[in-house]
Amino acid sequence: MEEWINSIMNEFGYLGVFLLIALENIFPPIPSEVILTFAGYMTLSTEMTVANVIFVSTAGSVTGAVILYGIGLLLDVERLEKIIDRWGKVLRLTKKDIHKADAWFDKYGPWTVFFCRLIPLIRSLISIPAGMSNMKFWLFLILTTAGTLIWNTLLVNAGAILGENRHKIVEYMDIFSNVVYVLIVLAFIYFVVKFIKSRR
Rank of each mutant, 00 (worst) to 15 (best):
L23C: 10
L162N: 08
S124W: 04
L186K: 02
V156G: 04
F191E: 15
A103F: 09
K168R: 11
P120L: 06
E11L: 10
L73F: 04
E164L: 02
I98G: 12
N178I: 08
S133P: 08
T148E: 06
V185L: 15
A39M: 09
A187K: 06
G131V: 00
I71D: 06
V179C: 04
N157W: 12
Y14D: 05
E78D: 13
A39K: 09
T112L: 01
I67E: 09
F115R: 03
K95H: 15
L91G: 09
L80K: 09
M132N: 06
A187F: 12
F195M: 09
N25F: 08
E2W: 12
G16C: 02
K82P: 01
D106F: 09
S177L: 13
T63Y: 08
A146T: 03
T144M: 06
N152W: 08
L36G: 05
W104T: 07
L23T: 06
I35W: 12
E164R: 12
V170I: 14
N178E: 03
R86A: 14
F195A: 09
W111Y: 11
L162S: 01
T112Y: 01
Y69P: 00
S124T: 10
E47M: 11
V17E: 04
L75K: 04
K136F: 02
P28L: 00
R199Q: 04
N6P: 05
I98Y: 03
S61D: 01
T112A: 11
V185W: 08
L68F: 02
F115G: 03
W104I: 07
A146Y: 00
G159S: 06
I83Q: 06
N52W: 11
